[in-house]
Amino acid sequence: MAGADRTIETGTILATSASATSYTLVEHAPEIGDPRLSDLLRYWCAKRRGRSVPAYRDIDPIEIPGLLTYLWIHDYDPESERFRVRLMGEAVRSTYDCPVVGIDVEDLVTQAAYPVVSERYRAVLDTPAIGHGRGRIYGHTIGRVGGGERLYLPLADDEGHPRMILGATIYKLLDDPQAAAAVEAGLRPDTMSPVAVL
């Protein structure tokens, strides 16, 4: 039911040994703040063409030039249950100190962060759902706190199975402790909106 504000399920996942983070499955479209991410969602929806999830072959990053530097695509291999980086725009890639295309996501994030990332990605593919987060970005993955917003969307393979994630992350790394503390104070769980609500 679009526009509803009722939470229908919460999944809690271990972020570190000292704390937990969660995602919330909701019955409404994500509440996106950055207009560039709204553009990405509209683009993704247009590519659905009556299907639950658009296919990877239907996505052309050149069609959304304002987002190229923020885009990323991760593949999911159901046999190994691992995610691998297929594409990463420069603004996102620059947060890492190594080449990232072709690398398993598990090797890009901290050991404590991977269960969080994997659980959220699996929710996006298995539901399928639209993942959205705002607040702390990268705090548990690269060990530096950033503030921003992220949208991650399922893509189907040639057989129609959701096997990839198209995402965009717009952020600013926060080296100032006060700014980082403010982001931490405003932290809210990621939401997962089932594609059926759109």
Results as ranks from 00 to 15, higher is better:
167 G>H: 02
42 R>N: 07
157 D>N: 13
23 Y>R: 15
172 K>I: 08
190 D>W: 06
19 S>I: 07
117 V>D: 01
181 A>G: 10
47 K>T: 07
82 R>V: 06
28 H>F: 14
19 S>P: 00
21 T>M: 08
158 D>Q: 07
140 H>D: 08
120 R>D: 12
152 Y>S: 05
88 M>G: 11
20 A>T: 15
159 E>M: 08
171 Y>Q: 07
136 R>Y: 03
83 F>I: 13
30 P>Y: 12
51 R>I: 03
64 I>C: 00
4 A>Y: 02
179 A>F: 04
159 E>S: 13
27 E>I: 13
62 I>N: 02
70 Y>T: 00
122 R>I: 11
82 R>M: 14
30 P>C: 14
113 A>N: 04
138 Y>W: 13
75 D>G: 00
130 I>D: 08
109 V>R: 01
195 V>R: 07
61 P>N: 04
158 D>Y: 05
123 A>G: 11
133 G>S: 09
122 R>K: 12
197 V>N: 10
42 R>D: 02
37 L>H: 01
7 T>Y: 05
105 V>I: 10
48 R>H: 05
5 D>K: 09
17 S>K: 11
32 I>Q: 13
60 D>W: 01
65 P>T: 01
122 R>C: 06
168 A>I: 10
178 Q>K: 09
182 A>Q: 09
76 Y>K: 00
103 I>Y: 04
150 R>V: 14
8 I>R: 11
153 L>W: 08
160 G>C: 05
86 R>T: 12
84 R>H: 05
91 A>K: 10
73 I>G: 00
171 Y>K: 04
10 T>R: 15
93 R>F: 06
55 A>K: 08
42 R>F: 00
123 A>I: 06
55 A>M: 09
174 L>S: 02
39 D>H: 01
146 G>K: 04
130 I>T: 14
41 L>V: 03
159 E>Q: 09
169 T>Q: 06
13 I>V: 15
106 E>M: 11
24 T>P: 08
141 T>F: 02
113 A>Q: 00
31 E>N: 12
84 R>T: 15
39 D>G: 03
149 E>R: 03
126 D>N: 15
47 K>S: 06
67 L>C: 03
58 D>M: 05
96 Y>Q: 13
67 L>D: 00
59 I>Q: 02
13 I>M: 15
43 Y>Q: 00
140 H>A: 11
90 E>S: 15
22 S>F: 07
109 V>W: 01
79 E>R: 12
122 R>L: 13
68 L>T: 00
51 R>V: 07
16 T>W: 05
187 L>G: 13
165 I>N: 10
27 E>M: 11
75 D>S: 01
16 T>G: 09
188 R>E: 09
41 L>N: 01
132 H>N: 11
16 T>E: 09
4 A>M: 05
74 H>V: 06
187 L>D: 15
